[in-house]
Simulated assay, not measured.
Amino acid sequence: MTRRPSPLLLDGAAVAMALLDVWAHWDIHEPLRMACGLSAALALLLRRRHPLLTFCVTLPSVLLSDAVFACLAALYTLASFKRPRTLLVLGALAFAFADTTSLPARGLDLTSRTTLIALGYSTATAAAAVFLGQLVQTRRDLSLRLTEISQARDRQELLTAQAALAKERAQLAREMHDVVSHQVSLIAVHAGALQVGTKDPNTKEAASTIRRLSVQTLDELRHMVGVLRASGGNPTDLTPQPALVDIRRLADNCGIETELTMDLPEGLPPTVQRAAYRTVQEALTNTRKHAPGATARIDLFQAGDRVHVRVTNTAPTQPPLPLPGAHHGLIGLRQRAELLGGTMSSGPTSDGGYEVRVVLPTEVTG
């Protein structure tokens, strides 16, 4: 896109052209005419703020001298900022008569062919300045209209996208409510029945853990459904984000034997606390899925300006169950750690277990 010159530069060029016009008709013996020409040239500095006043100030220079550029520039500016056609017609006629009369002439003889030709030429010159100003005004109005249309189109596209997103969220909420919540409810019911009907202590404890986790999952699902359905309506508060104090409860309710050691100061940034919690959560989930019968050790401590989160599990004592998974958990942990300026590493241990280690800065910027 071509960059337009600044208004100050254009005004300076107009004044320079007007001064050049005065210099071309300079006559040292006619100081009044030259003073009018110079005043008209300098008056062009006001043409954008006061176009009508500038035209009136420059008109005497046409009547008293041959320097007409300043008045034509003022007439062009008047036409580019003002809409009343009557005003523009009167301005063009005033310029034409002033240019044709040129005091101190005795008068305007309209019966003379030469006078009529000069009047027609002056009128055409003034009309050209008016038409050019009107063209610039029309172009400016069209540009503003196109900008408004473009903004309206962008708003419409945004509304359409938001409507589509709201529709998708509503559909997702229905699926979660009708399918996922129903299946989790069945899990909780069967786990409760197993807990009541069995006499084996280990089975009863496992059924109790399954039922408790199912109920917690149902509560979270109901809240998520409420958030999705509230899209586009009244805002719904999100579930409180986990912190370091929740890791103890997570370890106790994970369904596997864990040993937790946590030595971290208070006041860590919430993002660091959430990252530590999610690391432990994901590591324990992977242990339950891929290492049945294993035990886990959780270590959280600070070394210098870094928070270390390490979750290690022993080798499994039972064959893993074929559970579905997208294999995105560890990738998500690595991305979360990198966004916070930390690192993440994972891999098997020498005793056949597995270790997940995340190192995070204690101060997160950005």
Rank of each mutant, 00 (worst) to 15 (best):
C254P: 01
D305I: 08
R278D: 11
D299V: 12
G293S: 07
V280C: 13
E266M: 00
T287I: 12
L250P: 01
D246V: 00
F301G: 10
E259D: 03
A275K: 07
M262S: 12
Y277V: 04
V272N: 07
P292M: 05
P242D: 00
A294C: 13
E257L: 07
H290G: 04
V280P: 07
A296N: 09
V307P: 02
G304K: 10
L284G: 05
A283H: 02
P265M: 10
Q281W: 08
L244M: 11
G255Q: 08
T285R: 15
I247F: 06
I247L: 08
D305N: 15
T261P: 00
T287W: 09
V245H: 14
V307H: 04
K289T: 12
I298F: 06
D246G: 00
R310L: 02
T279H: 12
T287M: 09
L284W: 13
E282G: 00
R288A: 09
R288S: 11
R288C: 12
H308Y: 13
Q302N: 10
L284C: 07
G293N: 08
E266V: 00
R310Q: 04
D305P: 10
R306T: 15
E259A: 05
T261R: 11
G267Q: 11
I298R: 08
N253A: 13
Y277E: 05
D252W: 00
A303V: 12
Y277R: 07
L268F: 00
E257I: 06
Q241N: 09
D246P: 00
T285A: 14
V245I: 13
C254I: 14
H290T: 07
E259G: 03
Q241M: 14
R249F: 02
R310S: 01
D246N: 04
G293V: 12
A291G: 03
D305Q: 15
D246R: 00
L284F: 11
R249Q: 11
R310V: 02
H290M: 07
G255M: 08
E282S: 05
Q241L: 15
D305F: 10
T285W: 14
V309Q: 02
L300A: 09
